[in-house]
């Protein structure tokens, strides 16, 4: 019977496509950081957070804005307010490893800073979101992490 063979072949093709999609580098989105950040902050409350300029970004994250296609970073000026939101757009085919490593270090540093001393801040820091998608790196410590993430996913 031919039809079973055809069905089998279709399955094999789907498997190969599936593997292809999983292993392929995702295509970068053509949105700018401004558009993405705008979409995210229209959905979540970032009152009390202030936008950081290039110098401050360099100081806080040791990431220099020149290396990337755009960075948006807001954080609170209050010591005890751990909320922050960071969106980085990578250049074409740029590796995200360096930035991710630096962000992870920041999270760890912040966690050690508040660990054993401020339970609410620690709980928030534990729930951080760090993800990479379509040429963007997204990191946030907010009360409404999920909303921020879905806004981020939607705009891409």
């Amino acid at each position: 019977m031919k039809k079973y063979r055809i069905a089998e072949i279709i399955c094999i093709v789907i498997l190969l496509v599936f593997i292809g999609i999983l292993s392929a580098d995702e295509t970068a989105s053509d949105k700018t950081v401004k558009e993405v950040a705008g979409a995210v902050i229209s959905d979540v409350d970032i009152k009390g957070l202030s936008k950081q300029n290039e110098m401050q970004i360099k100081k806080e994250l040791s990431i220099s804005a020149k290396d990337y296609d755009g960075i948006y970073f807001v954080k609170s000026d209050e010591v005890m307010d751990v909320r922050e939101l960071l969106i980085i757009k990578l250049k074409d085919n740029q590796s995200s490893d360096d930035a991710i490593k630096k962000i992870e270090k920041r999270i760890k540093d912040k966690q050690t800073l508040f660990e054993g001393y401020a339970p609410e801040q620690s709980a928030m820091l534990k729930n951080y979101v760090l993800k990479q998608e379509a040429g963007f790196i997204f990191y946030c410590v907010l009360e409404e992490n999920e909303t921020a993430v879905s806004a981020f996913n939607k705009i891409l």
Partner: peptide
């Protein structure tokens, strides 16, 4: 599952 279902019948 679907693939092997067909293979079995085949």
């Amino acid at each position: 599952i679907v693939f092997n279902y067909f293979v079995g019948i085949d």
